[in-house]
Structures are given as C-alpha cells and as structure tokens.
C-alpha cells in the first residue's frame, strides 16, 4: 500500500522546482517506477510532484546543430518508434523497444528510465541495506545471480536501464534544471557508482529535473545496435547486454563506443573493447579477441559467474553482426 502524500501537478518548470525543494518531495513522470517503490516501502514521499503537464519536457525534435532533443517526458514507445531515432540512432530505438513490456513502454518516460531506481531484490525488499541507509549489502554474500561483475564497491547492484547504455554509446548529454539554474551533463557523468555515493544513482540534486536528453549529430558512417539477453523474452531486465556505436571506414573500425548493460552499477563503458577493435578490420577473429577483452577485470560473485561467458558471447555475436549490417 502507498504511503500518505500530497500531490501537485506543476504547471511550470519553476513551480515544479519550487515544490521539489520541500522535504520528501518526489518527481512523478510516468510513475511506473516511482509507484512500485512507494508501494514496496523502498522509500517514502510526502509530496508527489507531477511534471506531466510541462510542455517543454514533451516531444522529440531536431536541434540547430543537427542533433536531436528528446524531451524527458517522451515515452519509451515514442523513442522506440521515432523515425529519426530508428534511422540514425538505431541503438537507442532498439534499446527502447526492448524495455519492459508494451504497457510500461507506453507509460514510462525516457527521463524516468535513466533515473529509475535499482532492481536489486534486497534493495526493493524488506532489507535495510546499505543503499537504504543500513550498514550491510545483503547481496555480497547472498543471492547475487542478478548482480554486477564490474564496478561493485560495497554495493553490487546493476543499473537497470536499457536506454542509458544506448544513450551513452551515442555520446548523449542530459539537460537539467534546478533552483540554481540549468546545466548540461554528459550521460557518461550522469550516473554515480556506489564507490562515490552508495545512496545515490545520479548526480541530480533533490530539486533538479531532467528536462531533455541531447543527441549529437549522427555521422552517416556510424552503425549502432543494442543486444540484450534476459531470462524471459519480455517484461524483464538485462542479464547482460551491449550497446554498440561504431564508425566504420569500409570494414575497419574508426571510432567505437561500447557500453554494457546488466553487468555494472552504472552503464559500463568498455574501453578495453573499444581499444581492441579501433583501427582494425572487424572480422570474426577480432570479435573473439574483443569478447575476451570485454570480460577483462570482471569479478564474479558466488552466483553470477555465468555473466562472464554470457557477456563474452553477447559481445562476440553482436560485433560480428554489426560488421555485417
């Protein structure tokens, strides 16, 4: 059951920011993640500030620089179906279309997707864990089959978002408004690893709103794709996945961004894979090498060792596939 809270529907960014400054205020976009957290008593809220009426946060449009501005309130479905995204930012359309289920994609927003809370069952369950202000990570010695193999540090969540790795691979940035004005932050710096702050997932201050996501102009030489493996084919998060954005010159990789999902507390950029393939002809041999590089430094816990061969398999398969696109 939900806690008691007051509800306001802000009519301007300014008004929303003002409400958010009050103690225990939470942003409500599509509510698909927020309401679940409240019902499960993961955290509580005294005031729910709906941003759904803020026109400036809606819509997907081209920018003057030739990139794309995706409003924070664009639904996952809108992102998945947008013709420009499908055409030039394929990895994002693909990632969006693999999110959750049709109902959740219709209701959930891209802003909410990158801000969503972790899915660790200890965090979501009746466990007073480190991330909730407790003094223990239950996953470390517990049931950690869905936890991270990279970047674990006191807390071993994986970042649940599919769109975030795609956005990171595209070099996207996040537009933010708050009581001290607005700022734009690279997607790469938006999420916070547990080693930095175990109770925060993003750099947002309580009064800050994501207003939009900015995609830089897409080079025609870029190919991009997203591959996600899960325990069932819908309504499920990634066990492991990879976003690829690669600029080719012929069969040779000129520039590459490789970002993993489902294996780390933040979208996990693999400089190792990028290094392995950049400047080389992408063929089956190189893909196999890159797959080995992908899992360098991975540390398995008791129950998630499968993620290492899984990630290796995904990277190899997907690199071969993108070369053929």
């Amino acid at each position: 059951m939900l806690p008691n809270f007051t509800y306001v529907c802000a009519s301007s960014e300014k008004e929303a920011i003002k409400h958010l400054a009050s103690d225990g205020a939470r942003i409500h976009a599509g509510g698909t993640d927020l309401l679940g957290c409240l019902r499960d008593h993961v955290f509580t809220a005294r005031k729910i500030v709906s941003i759904s009426k803020l026109d400036s946060l809606h819509g997907i449009r081209k920018t003057a620089e030739g990139g794309l501005r995706v409003g924070a309130l664009a639904t996952i479905t809108e992102v998945a179906r947008n013709p420009i995204i499908r055409d030039r930012y394929h990895v994002l359309a693909q990632a969006a279309s693999e999110v959750a289920s049709p109902q959740l994609r219709n209701q959930g927003t891209i802003g909410g997707n990158i801000c969503q809370k972790p899915r660790c069952w200890y965090y979501r369950g009746e466990f007073h864990c480190l991330r909730k202000g407790g003094d223990q990570c239950f996953a470390a010695g517990g049931e950690n089959q869905f936890h991270c193999i990279f970047g674990g540090d006191m807390c071993y969540i994986v970042h649940p978002s599919d769109t975030s790795p795609a956005l990171l691979s595209l070099g996207a940035s996040v537009q933010i408004s708050g009581k001290r004005g607005s700022r734009t932050v690279l997607m790469e710096h938006f999420h916070i690893p547990p080693g930095q702050d175990v109770q925060k997932e993003t750099i947002l201050e309580p009064d800050e709103i994501v207003t939009a996501i900015l995609l830089p102009p897409a080079s025609p030489a870029m190919k991009s794709s997203y591959r996600k493996v899960r325990a069932r084919q819908s309504w499920d998060f990634a066990l492991a996945g990879t976003a690829l954005a690669i600029q080719f010159s012929g069969a040779t990789v000129e520039k590459a961004r490789v970002v993993f999902s489902g294996v780390a507390p933040v979208p996990w950029r693999s400089k190792e894979v990028e290094k392995t393939i950049t400047g080389k002809r992408l063929d089956a041999n190189l893909a196999a090498k890159a797959a080995e590089a992908a899992v360098k430094g991975a540390e398995a816990m008791e129950k998630n060792a499968y993620k290492i061969p899984l990630l290796r398999g995904i990277v190899e398969e997907e690199l071969i596939a993108i070369a053929k696109l």
Binding site: R119, W121, G125, E143, A231, R232, Q233, S234, W235, D236
Partner: peptide, 15 residues
C-alpha cells in the same frame, strides 16, 4: 527474494 511478478519469472507470450 522473488515474491512479485517481476522477480518470479512466469513465462510471457513471447516465451
């Protein structure tokens, strides 16, 4: 640990 419909994975139509 998996006492809801997300964590307890019933097959979906796509499975």
């Amino acid at each position: 640990l998996n006492r809801n419909w997300h964590d307890y994975k019933l097959p979906t139509a796509l499975d």
